[in-house]
């Protein structure tokens, strides 16, 4: 289904019966990332999954957005659909950071939170970030004379080589920079709601210590670590993740 929110066409899916769960996907992803999870949870919950603006079937934002803009849109989206209050939010990766920010600022309200390999601890990989940053700076300074098309090519090569997913969606480059800057550790510290944190022990994108950090910051939280080297634990460890979530929500 689609609906217009803040003059943007938002693609979403609403299914199942029961208390309402909202699912937020990560950067460069869309709500289909939760297909497996949804087919399990829909038996006992009503599920609301949306493609965030710029991803999947949703229209990209007209300006560059940060997490607050995304949070606001999610709230307006909820209002538009006029559904019951949210019982829990499930957020993966950047969707986790978004959930933390939206809950901490009171834009969204929920009883429980599930963070799957959540992003938002933005300085845990200083070496990598420094590499990305300096490559970008040097790149900008030394390639200004090149035609734009060639520069774009170079940029793709460089960022590709230092492992950034900034260019997964080139049109959202600025938006990516804004959301990536936004650290939500302070927001996490304000959260009082029951939180389940699930991380993979060998996640190449989000190190386990980010999960541990969130666990430290969110008082009422529980950390579960799954043996996996994938960032997409809800897919690679679907069974374990589903049973942890069901257990936590009931």
């Amino acid at each position: 289904m689609n609906v217009i929110v803040d003059n943007l066409d938002i693609h979403y899916e609403l299914k199942g019966r029961g208390r309402l769960l909202m699912l937020l996907h990560g950067w460069g992803d869309d709500y289909h990332t939760y297909a497996g999870l949804m087919s399990e949870l829909e038996h006992s919950y009503q599920l609301l999954a949306l493609d965030l603006p710029g991803f999947g079937g949703s229209e990209p934002p007209k300006q560059s957005w940060n997490l607050d803009n995304y949070a606001e849109l999610t709230a307006h989206f909820m209002a538009k659909l006029g559904l019951d209050p949210i019982y829990a939010i499930i957020g993966h990766s950047n969707g986790g950071a978004l959930a933390i920010r939206a809950l901490a600022t009171g834009v969204l309200k929920a009883n429980k939170l599930v963070l799957l390999a959540s992003a938002g601890v933005r300085n845990s990989q200083p070496a990598k970030r420094l590499a990305t940053k300096s490559v970008a700076k040097v790149g900008k300074a030394t390639t200004f004379w090149l035609p734009e098309a060639r520069r774009q090519q170079l940029r793709e090569k460089l960022y590709g080589s230092v492992g950034s997913d900034m260019l997964a969606v080139p049109a959202l480059e600025e938006t990516f920079k804004l959301t990536v800057k936004q650290d939500v550790q302070a927001d996490a510290a304000q959260l009082k709601l029951a939180t389940l944190i699930i991380n993979a022990n060998h996640d190449p994108a989000i190190p386990l210590k980010d999960g541990e950090r969130f666990h430290e910051l969110i008082k009422n939280s529980r950390l579960e670590v799954l043996p996996s080297s994938s960032h997409f634990i809800h897919q690679t460890k679907a069974k374990e993740v589903v049973s942890l979530i069901e257990d936590f929500l009931s």
Partner: peptide
């Protein structure tokens, strides 16, 4: 694109908004 099947007035309005968006 932007085609929807609706079953009640609320869905109808949302769907018209989407169609009118395009």
């Amino acid at each position: 694109i932007a085609i929807a099947r609706v079953g009640n007035p609320k869905e109808l309005i949302n769907a018209i908004e989407v169609a009118a968006h395009y």
